[in-house]
Simulated assay, not measured.
Amino acid sequence: MPFPDGLHFFDSIAPIAPRHWDALSPDPLPPHLRHAYLHALEASACVGGHSGWIPRHATLWDGGRLIAAMPLYLKTHSWGEYVFDWAWAKAYQEHGLDYYPKWLAAVPFTPIPGPRILGRSPATRRQLVDAVLHQVEGSGMSSLHVLFPHERDLELLRDSGLAVRHGVQFHWENGRRATDTDDAGPYCDFEDFLGSLNHDKRKKIRQERRRASMHGLRMRWLDGRSTRDGDWAFLNRCYANTYAAHRSTPYLNLDFFLRLAAGMPDQVLLLLAEREERPVACAFFLRDDEALYGRYWGAIAALPFLHFELCYYQAIEYCIRHGLRRFEGGAQGEHKLSRGLLPVRTQSAHWIADPRFSAAVDDYLERERTQMGFYLDELDEHTPYRRAAPADG
């Protein structure tokens, strides 16, 4: 269905043709930005309604064609974002101002970096950002936030006056690092990966895998085509249990997982750990041709070291076996470093309407970026990988 030229906001992604949304990038869209993923969130009521995530997807049309888009929401809280601005909201409140609702360009509950400004050319992406900023500035709302954008998006956002914030995640790269005895290249198998680690980390991982294997579990990888409804019901049970253990309310539901499996079966993966053909734990992943993305895990029994086995070691083996370039382990978690995942800088961009608060946020972010640099340097000092021997002379 064509729309008039210019900027249009949608309170649902459903009216936009999936093939048009998914074709907006010069490169294949990662799974979490595809139409099927965003539509599954809306159709399952994980967003919209009283969730605090109100869809306002920004689209740009020309000659009846969709030429650019942005997954955009009005937020009435800051849950499910993984970039924390609670202190900013508190400061607004203390001065008698409303921080919520705010504008947010992000993928709900999904801290995976990737494009947030979709368009096949730099010119259309620039046009979309300019149009959205014009609308945001005139909306009377406190702020606009763009979370985990692609580097090319970040440059555009910075040029448009948004302040940049830095964070850190831990990713595994499928590439043997050159040492005095090895050549660089993708790993052949898990043992090859272990060989790139220093002695202590290699020993620790072997011990953890040996302890996990003593549970006598069978591991099965399933995609959306090979899973049954009962498999997704088990995942949902484990996912809800994990949130309950942390006294939190789960963001997603069974309907979402079922819709995702049906709508993008080749991009969802479920790892089941079974005993006597009965599942006792599972982990949920997304994937594309480049990477595996760790999302959720859970178990119905407390089994030592099973979390590391399902969420990291099995995932690394999967990447090696299928030739994927990296494994993204999700938000936070310094414990991932000793298991071969290295720190990667993540970024977000922020526009604050009130100039007084904007100046204070700019000052805060400058100091935070400096501290983040020190933190990343400190993490690099504790790399789990063997270091190359210094060159002779």
Results as ranks from 00 to 15, higher is better:
residue 258 L to P: 01
residue 196 S to D: 13
residue 22 D to R: 08
residue 364 Y to H: 15
residue 15 P to T: 04
residue 284 F to N: 00
residue 98 D to K: 11
residue 168 V to N: 02
residue 200 D to R: 14
residue 384 P to I: 09
residue 312 Y to N: 02
residue 315 A to T: 00
residue 194 L to H: 07
residue 120 R to K: 15
residue 184 A to T: 03
residue 33 L to N: 04
residue 347 Q to G: 01
residue 112 I to P: 08
residue 117 I to D: 00
residue 243 Y to I: 03
residue 186 P to K: 00
residue 138 G to D: 05
residue 83 V to K: 04
residue 61 W to L: 10
residue 118 L to M: 08
residue 109 F to G: 02
residue 1 M to T: 15
residue 339 R to K: 09
residue 361 V to G: 00
residue 317 E to R: 15
residue 184 A to Y: 04
residue 88 W to Y: 00
residue 2 P to M: 12
residue 37 Y to C: 12
residue 111 P to M: 11
residue 284 F to T: 05
residue 260 L to V: 10
residue 5 D to P: 01
residue 237 R to H: 15
residue 82 Y to T: 09
residue 107 V to W: 11
residue 41 L to I: 07
residue 270 L to P: 02
residue 363 D to R: 13
residue 95 H to K: 07
residue 155 E to Q: 12
residue 183 D to A: 14
residue 327 F to Q: 01
residue 178 A to K: 15
residue 343 P to R: 01
residue 68 A to G: 10
residue 384 P to G: 05
residue 133 L to N: 00
residue 187 Y to E: 04
residue 10 F to A: 11
residue 370 T to H: 14
residue 152 R to Q: 14
residue 375 Y to C: 07
residue 31 P to V: 05
residue 53 W to A: 10
residue 183 D to L: 12
residue 324 L to F: 01
residue 148 F to E: 02
residue 278 R to Q: 14
residue 263 G to I: 09
residue 387 R to F: 05
residue 101 P to L: 08
residue 74 L to T: 06
residue 297 W to A: 00
residue 252 L to D: 05
residue 77 H to F: 03
residue 125 R to Q: 08
residue 209 R to Y: 08
residue 308 F to L: 06
residue 226 S to Y: 06
residue 180 D to L: 09
residue 230 G to C: 02
residue 123 A to I: 08
residue 347 Q to M: 15
residue 109 F to V: 04
residue 8 H to R: 14
residue 213 S to E: 14
residue 82 Y to M: 01
residue 216 G to L: 14
residue 275 R to K: 10
residue 144 L to K: 03
residue 119 G to F: 04
residue 378 E to P: 05
residue 40 A to C: 02
residue 286 L to C: 01
residue 164 V to K: 05
residue 184 A to N: 09
residue 40 A to I: 06
